[in-house]
């Protein structure tokens, strides 16, 4: 079994790699120029965070794999991201709602490694946490604008929330990996992440005049390498150049 901290880094690194890639699909397709640029910048932050986390994972593993090797040469069953991150980008409301739900979680979840005892991880997490606050603010403001906007924007925002809600439960599941990294002190694993997230999200969605779905938060499996059909297709596109021309540089 791989070291728990390696596994933990893959999880939070893959979340950012996959979500960053999904958001980057808006580049050149944003509804307005400012949003095109904003989504590209959010992607850049997320992929940068992924690079730092996956490089650290590779160092800890000690088998010569770096962020590029881990990003381009693993198959979908070896990815550890949340399933929510891999869903297709959908419309702008779906992308922003996902970013909001994820960033609201990351805002609390990243406190864990920040409070831990692993210096490099603390530094990476502290920076990511600050960057994430801008992502959260940007997405929050869009959720309010859309939810409390026109009939059409409200309809789309509510539809996005309804579709995403069942996938959010995975963010709060804890297993042996979390217990092990907590035990070694690298991460302070909070037991109250879900109620705190729910309180923050409920407040904002209320301001956006959106209704929290009653559907169970049931989708799960990403942390164990079980993914939707969408991840494989996304990786095929993301990995094709690296795999067609191994070791190529420019």
């Amino acid at each position: 079994m791989p070291a728990p901290l390696f596994e933990y880094l893959l999880r939070i690194g893959d979340d950012r790699l996959v979500l960053g890639h999904r958001n980057s699909e808006w580049c050149g397709h944003g509804p307005i120029l400012e949003e095109d640029i904003a989504l590209a910048n959010i992607s850049l932050d997320l992929i940068g965070q992924a690079q730092l986390l996956l490089n650290l994972a590779g160092q800890l593993e000690g088998q010569g794999r770096d962020a590029d090797t881990l990003a381009y040469w693993r198959d979908d069953v070896q990815f550890r991201n949340l399933q929510m991150a891999e869903l297709p980008k959908g419309d702008f409301a779906f992308t922003m709602m996902r970013q909001f739900l994820f960033s609201a979680w990351a805002n609390l979840q990243l406190e864990g490694p920040i409070q831990g005892n692993h210096e490099d991880l603390k530094g990476i997490a502290a920076k990511a946490h600050k960057e994430n606050r801008y992502h959260l603010r940007h997405a929050s403001e869009w959720v309010i604008r859309m939810g409390d906007g026109t009939e059409e924007s409200h309809r789309r925002a509510q539809a996005a929330l309804d579709e995403l809600w069942p996938w959010t439960g995975e963010m709060f599941q804890q297993d042996d990996v979390d217990r092990a990294v907590a035990e070694q002190g690298a991460v302070v694993v909070a037991a109250d992440l879900e109620p705190r997230w729910r309180a923050a999200v409920t407040d904002l969605l209320g301001r956006a005049r959106l209704t929290i779905p009653t559907a169970p938060m049931r989708m799960t499996g990403g942390r164990k390498g079980r993914h939707t059909e969408y991840l494989g297709r996304m990786l095929a596109e993301m990995q094709i150049v690296a795999r067609s021309h191994p070791g190529a540089t420019w």
């Binding site: 400012e34 603010r137 929050s140 309010i144």
Partner: peptide
């Protein structure tokens, strides 16, 4: 501040004229 929408945001002073009568057009 996590959400500024609808609240009076602390304006960033204009680097050209120093005025605080400015608005944020885009976060990025």
């Amino acid at each position: 501040e996590l959400v500024q929408l609808g609240r009076p945001a602390k304006a960033v002073p204009c680097p050209w004229c120093g005025s605080s009568n400015t608005t944020r057009e885009s976060e990025f």
